Simulated scan of single mutants.
Amino acid sequence: MKKTMVITGAASGLGRALAIKAAAQYDVAVLDIQAQAGQQVVDEIQSQGHQAAYFNCDVTDAQAMDTVAQQVLSHFGHVDVLINNAGIASEGGVEASSIEQWNRVLSINLMGVVHGCRAFLPYLKQQPEAAIVNVASFAALALAPYMASYNVSKAGVVALSETLRAEMVGTGVHVAVACPAFFKTNLTQSMIDSHDKMKQRIEKWMESSSFNADDVAQDILTAIDKKQFMVLSDQKTKNQWRVARWLPNVFFRQKIKFIKRLN
Results as ranks from 00 to 15, higher is better:
Val152Ile: 15
Phe182Gln: 13
Ile192Tyr: 09
Glu203Thr: 05
Val169Phe: 10
Arg201Leu: 05
Ala37Lys: 13
Cys57Ile: 07
Asn263Pro: 00
Trp102Gly: 04
Ile45Lys: 10
Ile202Asp: 05
Gln39Ala: 02
Trp241Met: 10
His78Trp: 01
Asn263Phe: 07
Asp225Arg: 08
Phe182Glu: 12
Lys226Glu: 12
Thr60Arg: 15
Gln235Val: 03
Ala64His: 14
Leu18Val: 01
Thr8Glu: 05
Ile202Trp: 03
Ala181Cys: 13
Gly172Lys: 03
Asp66Trp: 00
Gly49Tyr: 08
Glu100Lys: 11
Glu129Tyr: 13
Asp225Leu: 02
Ala155Leu: 10
Val79Tyr: 12
Arg201Gln: 11
Gln126Val: 10
Gly112Val: 07
Ala148Asn: 05
Asp32Phe: 06
Gly172Ser: 04
Val173Tyr: 08
Gly9Trp: 02
Thr185Ile: 05
Glu95Leu: 14
Asp225Phe: 01
Gln71Trp: 06
Val105Asn: 12
Gln235Cys: 01
Arg261Met: 09
Gly156Arg: 02
Asp196Asn: 04
Ala22Glu: 02
Ser137Val: 01
Asn239Gly: 11
Lys236Asp: 14
Lys238Leu: 02
His78Leu: 05
Ala139Ile: 01
Ser107Arg: 12
Val59His: 00
Phe182Tyr: 13
Ala155Cys: 02
Ala119Cys: 03
Lys3Glu: 15
Val158Asp: 06
Leu31Met: 01
Asn109Cys: 06
Arg118Leu: 03
Ser97Asn: 06
Leu110Pro: 02
Met111Asn: 14
Val113Lys: 03
Val68Gly: 06
Ala35Thr: 13
Ala181Asp: 15
Met198Glu: 05
Leu262Phe: 06
Val133Trp: 03
Gly9Ala: 02
Ile45Pro: 14
Leu82Gln: 06
Gln240Gly: 13
Pro128Ser: 14
Ala17Arg: 08
Ile108Lys: 11
Ile259Phe: 00
Glu203Met: 12
Val94Ile: 13
Val243Asn: 05
Thr222Ile: 03
Gln39Trp: 01
Phe258Asn: 12
Asp43Leu: 08
Val133Phe: 01
Asp215Cys: 09
Phe138His: 14
Glu129Gln: 15
Gly49Met: 09
Ile192Ser: 04
Val6Cys: 02
Met198Ser: 09
Thr4Pro: 07
Gln228Met: 04
Val175Pro: 07
Gln126Asp: 12
Val158His: 11
Gln254Pro: 01
Ala64Tyr: 11
Asn109Met: 06
Lys184Asp: 11
Gln39Met: 07
Phe251His: 13
Pro180Ser: 10
Gly38His: 09
Ala130Asp: 07
Gly49Pro: 10
Trp102Cys: 04
Gly15Ile: 00
Gly170Arg: 02
Val30Ala: 01
Met1Asp: 15
Ser12Asn: 14
Ile83Asp: 09
Leu187Ser: 11
Ser209Gly: 02
Ala24Cys: 13
Asn263Cys: 09
Pro122Phe: 02
Arg165Glu: 06
Lys257Asn: 10
Glu91Ile: 13
Asn239Cys: 08
Thr188Ser: 08
Ala142Leu: 10
Ser74Arg: 14
Tyr123Leu: 07
Asp196Ile: 02
Val157Ser: 06
Lys227Leu: 08
Asn186Tyr: 00
Ile192Thr: 05
